[in-house]
Each structure stands twice: as structure tokens, then as C-alpha cells.
Design a binder for these strands. Structure first.
Lengths: 210, 210
DNA sequence: AAAAAATACCCCTTCAGGGGTGATTTTTTA
DNA sequence: TAAAAAATCACCCCTGAAGGGGTATTTTTT
């Protein structure tokens, strides 16, 4: 673990005002040091390994390689670096993609600048900071749909199918006949308008039924 | 949308000290009103509908019905209520279960009390507040495993299987023979130690390979 | 009393998966 | 840079489970 009190920060952000603003802010109102600030990933990648940063503040909408595409490359060059995304985009897909690809935190640009200092501190201590609007979207992506067309039994059976159980195993577990399982499965397929286990699971997951 | 400046709060928490502490704190240092505080869900459920709360602060480890089991019941009684979980548990599974079942925010009990006031404000404004340790776990649950035993081609085929494509469709899409797809699938099964599509998808998801 | 859900059975076709074999190409590494 | 390893490609046989079709009784809910 690097020195948490003097973490090395790199900023990758194309907007000069924002870039220099954060640079100044971090250098002067926090114990952290900005070792470099770049206007794009394509410029940053040539030198960033030498910068040896602990935390990278990374914009998504960069000229050339986007922040999302930069993520796996940064993780390969600097496996232990913490990356905080900073962007105006906040669609669920982009947020989830960024986090899936190794971002440690995610803030939208309407976040008060002082929160970024807190965020650096949090990632250095193993946290995963997000702005409230971002975490709201993350939470929504985890929530189940309350209005399922499936009955309780059907939902139960679909969950077992999703676990990889076959008809026989499901029948045993629920103390019902294999043929009954078949009937339920048929009804599930009709309701979800699919004709295979895989499709049923996908439709169910997409609509957060299971 | 209820009056955001005078939100009605209910606390469900069995520890008297914590319960009364939050009660006092919220009533005296925030614009919000604690309309009631209960030591368990089983007591709360009899009266909580009349309390008409905007936000419920809910402990997980309650006597009788647990906070997790209380979630769907509360959501049924009060569909628009915001629920902030407050607990010492912070395993990934419990956190994800709580959020999947309708919690709007999640804090561990080492969170400074003042953060709870902020959290109430955030949920009232559509945010999804979480403490850094919690959001870290949520983020980890979203991240892909960088060290997959599968080759690119195998990962690609497994993703198509997970989308519900059959051998023929995969062969067409990748411009290879159906038999080749079969060979790849066999190798995937050997590497993941499974013997069905469903199990392969599950192992892959559990280990975040796809 | 009617509707919805859960239960159970039969026939038939298609596809997934187990087993085995072997060639060509790409990538790694010694 | 040549040898070894890994990845990709292709084919055959056989069995069992999945899925489509239909029918019908009992239980639960409204």
C-alpha cells in the first residue's frame, strides 16, 4: 500500500479549465500531489507508467481513445491504480460498463469539486465512492421488477432453471412430478414469449424478474 | 412528491441506544420529523401504514422478521417509501439482496451519524446513498474477472451461448462450422468443469468471466 | 360460482452433450 | 529462430433431455 497521505494523482481530462481547476484544487487544498495532467489518453499512455500514479481521475469523453476504452489499457499498465471516472454521461449502461471494466468510483460533473478530494481519500482507503445520482442508477440496475407476469411457482421454477437444474432435479426439490414441471415451463415460455431455457433466463434477467 | 423539507421518518431498530440516538439526532439537527420508532418489524407493521413515512431507517438484524424479509412487505404496504438499510452486516450477498429487494440506500453502522441526515436528503432527491465500504462491495460485484481460463474465442462463444444462441446460430455468426462450435463448447466445459450450457453460464457469471 | 393456479399424463421430434480422432494455424518460449 | 504449446478448426456415432402438441383434475383465489 502506498503512502495514503501523499498519494500521486494523474488527471486525464480534455477540458483545460476543468483539468487545471482540479490540478490547482488538489495541489493546494489536499495532501495529494498531481504528478501530471493530460488532455487525452493517447498522450497520457506514453508517459503515465513513469508517473506511477496511485489514483487516476479519468474523463469519459476524451478526443481519440475514450475513457471507457482507456480503462482496460490503464489497468494493464498499472494493475493497482485506482481510477475515478468523471463525466457528464450518466446512462446506466455507460456507468455499469465503466465499473465492470475496473473503475473504482464514478462521479458526474455536477459534483462539488471538494467531493473529489473526499473520493481520492475513500479509494485510497478501499472505498468505492460514487455521486448520489450514479449510485442511484447502480442500485436501480440491481432492483427486481415488482410486476412480474409469472406466478410464484413459475418464478420459483425459473430461478431453479437459471441455476442450471434440470426437470428431474426441479421436480425432486419441489416434491412435484416431472410432468408438472414441464407444464409450468411451458406456461413460462408462453408468458415470456420464448422457447428455450436460455431465452427464458435472458428475458427474465433483462426484465429483472429473477 | 411529498414535502422534501419536512419528510416523515420512521426508525426500525432493536438497539434502544441507537434507536433513541437517531430519533433525537434527526428531530433536533435536521428539518425532518421522526413520526415513530419501533424495536422490531413485527411491532412496526401494525401501525406503520398510519405513520405514512417518506423514509424508513431499517436495521437488518431485528428480533423476529429480519430487515431483509421486512423489505418486500414494507414495499407492499408503502410502495413509494424510501428505505435506508443500517446494519453491521456487509457481506456482498446481504447488501445485494437488500438492494435487489427495494432498499434505496445502505449504510454500515460505523457510518458517522451525521451522514444519515445527508442520506435522508439524498433519497428524498432521488439519490441512492451508500457508505464507501458498501459501494465498494457493490462495485466489486459489477467488475469482471481479468484472469479468465478461457481463450478469446471460447469467451466469445460462451457469451453467445449466454445470449441464448444455439450451435447453428453461433456457427453462422462466427463463420465457422457447427462442429467447430461443438469442439469449443466441449473445451469450455472441461475448463469450467461443467457439463451443460446452464452450468457453464452460471460458473462464468459467478466468476465474472462474462 | 368463476377464474386462476398448480397438478399430472401421453406422443413425437429436435438438439445438446459424451465419446473419440486428427489437421491447421497462431502464439509462446526456450 | 526453431520447437513446443495453445488455439482453432473439422468430422462421426450415439443417447438422453428439452421442447411442441394436446388433455384433464384438483386446489386456491377472487
Amino acid at each position: 500500500m502506498p503512502n495514503q497521505e501523499a498519494a500521486r494523482i494523474v488527471i486525464i481530462e480534455d477540458d483545460k479549465t476543468i483539468r487545471e481547476g482540479y490540478h490547482y484544487l488538489i495541489d493546494n487544498t489536499s495532501p495529494y500531489t498531481v504528478v501530471n495532467a493530460y488532455p487525452s489518453f493517447d498522450v497520457a499512455k506514453l508517459k503515465i507508467a513513469k508517473d506511477n500514479p496511485d489514483v487516476i481521475i479519468l474523463d469519459i469523453q476524451l478526443p481519440g481513445t475514450s475513457g471507457i476504452d482507456a480503462l482496460p489499457q490503464l489497468k494493464k499498465m498499472l494493475p493497482d491504480v485506482y481510477i475515478i471516472m468523471l463525466t457528464v454521461y450518466e446512462t446506466e449502461k455507460i456507468i455499469l460498463d465503466a465499473l465492470a471494466n475496473g473503475a473504482s468510483g464514478y462521479f458526474t460533473k455536477n459534483t462539488p469539486s471538494s467531493k473529489i478530494i473526499d473520493a481520492i481519500k475513500e479509494v485510497m482507503h478501499g472505498g468505492g465512492p460514487m455521486s448520489p445520482d450514479v449510485s442511484k442508477k447502480v442500485i436501480m440496475s440491481l432492483q427486481k421488477n415488482q410486476h412480474s407476469p409469472l406466478t410464484k411457482r413459475e418464478t420459483q421454477i425459473l430461478e431453479l432453471i437459471a441455476e442450471g437444474k434440470d426437470r428431474g432435479q426441479i421436480a425432486n426439490q419441489l416434491f412435484i412430478d416431472v410432468e408438472t414441471v414441464k407444464t409450468h415451463v411451458k406456461n413460462i415460455y408462453i408468458k415470456l414469449d420464448v422457447n428455450s431455457k436460455a431465452d427464458a433466463i435472458n428475458v427474465a434477467r433483462t426484465n429483472k424478474l429473477i
